[in-house]
Deep mutational scan, measured.
Amino acid sequence: MFYPNSPQTSPQLTQIPYGQQYAMMQRQIQQPYHPFATTEPQARLYPYHYQGPIQQEQGGFITQQSTAASPQYVQMRVTPVDQSIMSGYPNQTANGSSSSSFNYNIHPQQQQQQQQQQQQLRHHAMPVGSVPLQDDRYRKQLIVNYLAPDVTSTDLHELFSRFGELDGARIIYDKQTNMSKGYGFVYFCHAEDAKEAVERMSGYEFHGKWLKVGYSTNPLNIVPSNSSPYVHAGSRGAAG
Rank of each mutant, 00 (worst) to 15 (best):
Y48I: 09
T39F: 04
Q111D: 12
A148Q: 13
Q92C: 08
Q56L: 04
S6W: 05
V231R: 08
Y230F: 12
A43L: 03
M24S: 14
P41N: 07
Q15T: 09
D136G: 04
P4R: 13
T67F: 05
G214E: 03
G88A: 08
T67M: 14
F163A: 01
Q83P: 08
S101L: 07
Y204K: 13
M86S: 07
Y204Q: 11
S153M: 15
R170G: 00
A37Q: 13
G164F: 02
I222R: 03
A69Q: 07
H190Y: 11
N145P: 00
L121C: 06
I85Y: 09
S99G: 09
T79F: 03
Q8L: 09
P47D: 11
D193R: 15
N5R: 14
R170P: 00
D167C: 03
N95F: 06
Y22H: 13
D82L: 04
I16V: 11
F185K: 02
P127I: 04
F185V: 01
V151L: 04
S130A: 05
Y173H: 13
R44N: 06
Q83H: 09
A68P: 10
V78A: 13
S84A: 11
S227N: 08
Q64P: 09
F206M: 08
T14P: 09
S228T: 06
V231T: 13
I29F: 04
A239N: 02
A43N: 09
L156D: 00
Q114W: 13
P108C: 11
H49C: 04
Q119Y: 10
P224K: 04
Y46W: 11
Y50D: 14
V151C: 05
T79K: 14
G184P: 00
I222C: 03
E196T: 13
S153A: 04
L133K: 14
S10R: 13
S84K: 15
V213Y: 00
P11S: 11
V128Y: 13
Q28V: 03
A169K: 02
S66G: 07
F102N: 07
E205F: 15
Q110D: 04
Q42R: 14
R77P: 05
F206Q: 01
F188Q: 02
T9P: 06
G164M: 01
P219D: 00
Y73W: 05
S99Y: 14
E199C: 14
H190S: 04
M76S: 15
D155Q: 14
P229D: 07
V81G: 12
Q12M: 06
N95L: 05
A191D: 03
Y50V: 09
T177A: 05
T38Y: 06
K212F: 01
P53C: 07
M179W: 15
S100H: 09
K181N: 07
M86R: 15
Q55E: 06
H232C: 11
R236H: 10
E205C: 06
Q109L: 09
F102S: 08
T79P: 12
R200K: 06
Y183S: 01
P11C: 04
R139K: 09
L121Q: 05
S130P: 11
G214N: 07
Q115W: 08
R27C: 02
S84C: 10
L211T: 01
Q134L: 07
L159P: 02
S101Y: 10
V144S: 00
S180I: 01
P11V: 04
N218M: 01
Y104A: 10
Y46E: 13
L156V: 06
S180Y: 00
P53I: 04
Q111F: 09
N178S: 14
P53Q: 12
R137L: 03
H124W: 12
Y104W: 05
L13P: 14
F2G: 11
R122A: 05
H157G: 13
G168V: 07
G208C: 14
L121R: 10
Q28R: 12
Y46I: 04
E199V: 14
N145G: 00
T177L: 03
H107Y: 12
G182T: 02
Y173D: 00
Q120I: 08
Y187H: 01
R200E: 04
S161Y: 14
M24V: 15
K140S: 03
L133Y: 10
S235M: 15
G59M: 05
Y48Q: 15
N221C: 13
Y50W: 06
G214H: 07
N178T: 13
Q65F: 06
P17F: 02
A94S: 11
Q112E: 06
S130T: 05
L121F: 12
L156H: 01
V144W: 01
P41I: 04
L220I: 12
P149L: 14
Q42L: 06
Y22T: 13
F163K: 01
I106Y: 11
H232V: 06
R236E: 03
H124R: 13
V151K: 01
A233Y: 15
Q51D: 06
L220M: 05
V81C: 09
M86E: 14
L156M: 14
A194L: 00
R200Y: 03
F163Y: 03
E196N: 07
G234F: 15
H190G: 05
L142Y: 00
Q30C: 05
N221A: 07
V213D: 02
K209W: 01
H107C: 14
P80F: 04
K212D: 01
L156Q: 01
S10H: 10
E165Q: 13
P7R: 14
Q115S: 07
D82W: 06
P32Q: 11
L220V: 13
L159C: 08
L166H: 00
H190P: 00
Q20E: 04
I106L: 09
I143K: 01
A239C: 05
